Amino acid sequence: MPNREIHNVLHFVPLFDPKAAVTDNTAQVSAIIDLAGYNAAEIVLQTGTLTDADATFAVTVAESDAANMSGSNAVAASQLVGTLAQASFDFNTDSKARKIGYIGTKRYIQVTVTPANNTGNLFLSGVAVLGYPATGPTANPPQA
């Protein structure tokens, strides 16, 4: 039987904390995620009820070696697992999860979700799932 235990090899860092609905086209910028000590990162976004009839929400990922994201650049498609289009969503994506993996070499990443045509409610939360730790087991509860 395969080993089904992943508890000790995953670490979770909040990207977007749950909050009141966003009702305009303001870009939602995540926390900066420090990948030090981990060899894998998966970005997971979750939507709530989206109440606009034509809104779209584009996802981008930036990378940097600086803790404040100075000198950041957009992550090349070759450094992502999945596509930005697959991670993005629209008004029909109520209560769904989207994911995209990062396999680049920079220490820090940050996610931006940019609404277009949003006059309704955007409920968004997210978490970065870090894996393949250099040392383990990972802390429980997770420490940022």
Rank of each mutant, 00 (worst) to 15 (best):
I103Y: 06
T138S: 09
H7K: 13
D94K: 10
T119C: 03
G131V: 12
A58T: 15
L10R: 07
S88A: 05
F89R: 05
T83R: 05
A40R: 13
V59H: 00
F57H: 01
L15M: 09
V29F: 07
G48H: 07
G48V: 11
Y102P: 00
N68W: 12
S64R: 00
A87Y: 01
D34S: 08
T112S: 15
E42A: 14
V81R: 12
G101K: 03
Y38T: 03
A58H: 05
L35F: 09
A62I: 06
A128P: 05
G82Q: 07
Q143C: 15
G136P: 12
A139K: 14
R107H: 06
V129R: 07
G120Q: 04
P141C: 04
A97R: 11
I33A: 00
G37D: 00
G48R: 01
T26D: 00
T83N: 09
P137V: 08
P14A: 09
I43E: 06
N121H: 13
P14W: 08
T119D: 06
S72T: 06
Y102C: 12
L50K: 04
A21Q: 02
S88R: 00
R98I: 06
Y38C: 01
G126Q: 10
T105N: 12
P141S: 07
Q110V: 14
T105D: 13
S72M: 09
N140Y: 10
L80K: 08
N25W: 05
D52G: 08
T135Q: 10
T93S: 14
A20R: 07
G104F: 02
P137R: 08
V44Y: 09
V22W: 08
G136D: 12
L124A: 02
V29P: 03
L10E: 02
Q86H: 12
N3S: 09
Q79K: 14
Q143P: 15
P2Y: 08
T112A: 11
G48E: 14
T119G: 03
S64P: 03
L124D: 07
A55Y: 04
V29C: 00
A53E: 09
Y38A: 04
D94P: 06
T26I: 04
I100L: 11
G120M: 06
A31F: 02
A40L: 15
D65Y: 04
P115I: 06
D17F: 14
